[in-house]
Design a protein around this nucleic acid. Sequence first.
DNA 1: GTCTATATGTGGATAGAC
DNA 2: GTCTATCCACATATAGAC
Lengths: 216, 216
Amino acid sequence: MQFEVGAHRTDRPAGRIRQQNEKLILDAAEQEFARHGFKGTSMQQVADRAGLPKANIHYYFNNKLGLYYAVLSNIIELWDSTFNELSGDDDPAEVLPRYIATKIDFSRRYPQASRVFAMEILSGGTHLSEYFQQDYREWFRSRAAVFERWIADGKMKPIDPAHLIFLLWGSTQHYADFAIQVQAALGKEELEEDVFETAARTLTEIILGGCGIRRD
Amino acid sequence: MQFEVGAHRTDRPAGRIRQQNEKLILDAAEQEFARHGFKGTSMQQVADRAGLPKANIHYYFNNKLGLYYAVLSNIIELWDSTFNELSGDDDPAEVLPRYIATKIDFSRRYPQASRVFAMEILSGGTHLSEYFQQDYREWFRSRAAVFERWIADGKMKPIDPAHLIFLLWGSTQHYADFAIQVQAALGKEELEEDVFETAARTLTEIILGGCGIRRD
DNA sequence: GTCTATATGTGGATAGAC
DNA sequence: GTCTATCCACATATAGAC
């Protein structure tokens, strides 16, 4: 049925439709989960936003939880990638500004992803228990060690690395998660690129200055 | 009916039960709204947590939206109070550490309130449109002016005040909103007071240092 | 004021025609 | 693969006995 010989060319390789629909659904689900969280999102809303019947969502993703995990894991992948690039051998004056810029850029380009993650944490993080329990603490420690190394090498002042990391996360993600409030405060309909640029520049100046990291 | 003469003393002034029950319901609602947001919270869950029949919730608060607004307005009141105390006449070296300590203390004492607010913002802030549209921008500007004054008076480096405010908010609220992640990173079952103290001290050092504010 | 029972809608999920 | 029709649990909200 799928490979009938002599059928007219459809220009759609096998699975093409599936790929298209899955993307439609995942994008729609990300939007809905970002605004209403897992419990607050209905499959009907996802279906309406994706422009497909509700039953199709269940066809592609077994159930609501499966769909949610699919969205979440996309985000987690995206998340950890950046932070792993920092190394103790680097010069913080060079890589920290880049890290801040990257995180701010994430807030600009993937605000929905950031919000789904934030929603999940606020909801108690029950769907991330594996992610958090396994070796998360070890991973975090190894990341904190990068800063400890910089401190030992006299590249920055003795600042508590864990709280510095929380500061980096909290201040950068704020521009995605609290965008509505930032918009209201600045009197803007939408956050344009210059806001993110100024944010990155200001955060870099304060944090590097506060850590006693001198840039050339 | 309410003031029958000769009724036996109940030791309960009129409205005492009402007051008690309203508090029970509001506390329960705050917990639920913090975890599941407006859409994701059911009146049954609130009732169960409050230990009252569902119909009673509807008796005290007309409907779900009324209950939600009651919870939200409590929080907003709590929120704005601190920030309004900063003045251009003050010495930032004195009042900024106090502001940071107060915000961190809020995250410790009222994490649920912080989360309800965060949830509402993530959900699009549709129930705060009045709060945000009215004179929020003006209020924010007047607050930013405090920092501008400090800059003009040479009390701190020329840092963009708006983004400095976002940094203060984002970094302090992080300890309430992302407590689960902070716990996982630090390997703690619960965040104890020393974590909040170290957080306040570290944030103060970085932010004041980064703004070029010297403390005695 | 309190609470059981219920009306009416929407939730997730699936059967089965096409 | 697609989509209508439908099942049943649970949602908000209220009626009405106590």
